[in-house]
Design a binder for these strands. Structure first.
Lengths: 122, 122
DNA sequence: TGGTTATATAACCATAAGGTGATTAATGGA
DNA sequence: TCCATTAATCACCTTATGGTTATATAACCA
């Protein structure tokens, strides 16, 4: 479950509207209406996006009278970052790729290879 | 186009098969057959995944006889990392969230808010 | 009680995503 | 030239995504 959360997190981040929502929430809590305002899209659409973010663990929601303020919950971003970290060597100085390759071959890398049906990849 | 590449990159990373493929490629080039081997899925399916990775700029492909070796091209991961970086404060010491909030309010944060129809978010 | 505001849910639609099997194309070797 | 190998493409299917409108729910206010 925790592994597959990466799926949910990356999928959530793949949408520009959702990234923008996170960006907005970085400056503090906000209700659905407030979050919806900047977009040319209906409130239910925003609610759907929020549900995606919530299921990825990227936001949590409180209760303030009839409002349901959203707050950013960026810990899943840390997990995404952790995953990316493992490839840092590949983008830092993209020339000495050979170096890292050799290094890899000695102390096996990120995720050697998945298995069978429902993969257990990363 | 470059902005929307984040969409493609995150979307590509949202699939465990594709993450596993990248993990495999981290230890060196590989052909399609070789990449397909560990998975319970047909060669065309893998080819599709590779196309997704390629369109996100995450891999490139060469030619070696009838093989089309794939190599990891992790620079887009750097862009993803860059985006995540902006939220680092939120996951490092997830308690003093208030601190970063206040800090945010002074020097406006990542991405204040998007606009209109086809958003120009992040 | 009735009305207003904020949000969620339902039913629907179009398109994209992830598979499949069958076929085609490209290359190298007998 | 014929065959084997590697990979791409085609036609198709099922399910998920991202949006819509219309309706329901929840909480406050009068």
């Amino acid at each position: 479950m925790e592994l597959n959360r990466l799926d949910a997190v990356f999928a959530a981040l793949a949408d520009p509207t959702r990234r923008a929502i996170l960006a907005r929430l970085a400056s503090g809590e906000a209700g659905v209406m407030e979050l919806a305002k900047p977009f040319a899209m209906t409130q239910p659409a925003i609610s759907k996006h929020l549900r995606v973010l919530e299921r990825a663990g990227l936001i949590s929601r409180g209760r303030d009278a009839q409002r349901r303020p959203c707050r950013i919950e960026a810990q899943p971003l840390a997990e995404a970052n952790e995953w990316l970290e493992r490839y840092r060597q590949f983008w830092e100085g993209s020339f000495q790729r050979l170096d890292s390759l050799l290094e890899e071959l000695q102390s096996p890398p990120p995720n050697p290879a998945p298995i069978s049906d429902k993969d257990q990849p990363t």
